[in-house]
Amino acid sequence: MRESSSSLAGLRRRVARIAASGAPSVRQSERWLASGHDRFDAALGGGLAAGRIHEFFAADPLDAASAAAFAALLALRGGGEAPLLWLRTADAGRKAGHFYAPGLAELGGDPNRLLLVETGDAKALLAAANDAVRCAGPAAAVVESHGRLPAFDLTAGRRLALGAREAGTTLFLLRIAAEPVPSVAETRWQVAAAPSRELEARAPGAPAFDLLLLRWRAGPAGARWRLEWNRDDQAFRDPALSGALLPLAPRRALEPRGAAAA
């Protein structure tokens, strides 16, 4: 049995070589993680490029859950079986809260696809991330970090980017309580919670996100989006369906200073 399977493997390699020399194979990175919102995806040329690093900065530490949920929804959107790797340090549960599977199920994601990895410190976190991006299986790997993350310098970033490009695995880097600094990320976003569409009896509605594209390697940055997550369609959409009267611009200016100290 072993002999026949190894000769099969040899044949398979030969076929793969012939195929590679003949026609240019479809590159892994030409896939996209789309949001389901037509204009958003079109503006980015199809969505967030797969096999690249994308950074999500929480606008405020209080926006951590919004940034995390946005990354999780992008990765898990549209079903499939591929697992989602979620890497965080052991103290993240105390700082930001524990990952809550019923909440993910309420958003329409399948918690059974989730594989949580906890590391002792930021160095081990990046080492684990390096292994995760080199693994071709997962839908995406999410690395959640709190604070400055000095270990993630340009060298470490390039190593991650190379690994992700080779394996075709997308890496979402969640940066909470951190300032954007130059890095090798394909796109860099600022994510904040947006006021939701009011339901009857003054109940909060579906989750809404304020997105600011801070940097995009393939095009101009600075675009702002406000997207609402529609669980039943498994897609993002415009929030203003009901003609909601939401003040858009001065939101940040009105914010009390105390929130930043938290």
Binding site: A68, A72, G93, P102, E106, G108, P111, S196
Partner: peptide, 28 residues
């Protein structure tokens, strides 16, 4: 632990049209 986890079970399905009723992060 992933090595001990039993066969995946179905999670309760959320009701259509409702906003999420459980949080994404939980403080414990």
């Amino acid at each position: 632990p992933a090595a001990d986890a039993p066969r995946p079970e179905r999670w309760p399905e959320p009701e259509a049209g409702e906003p999420p009723l459980r949080p994404f992060y939980l403080f414990d």
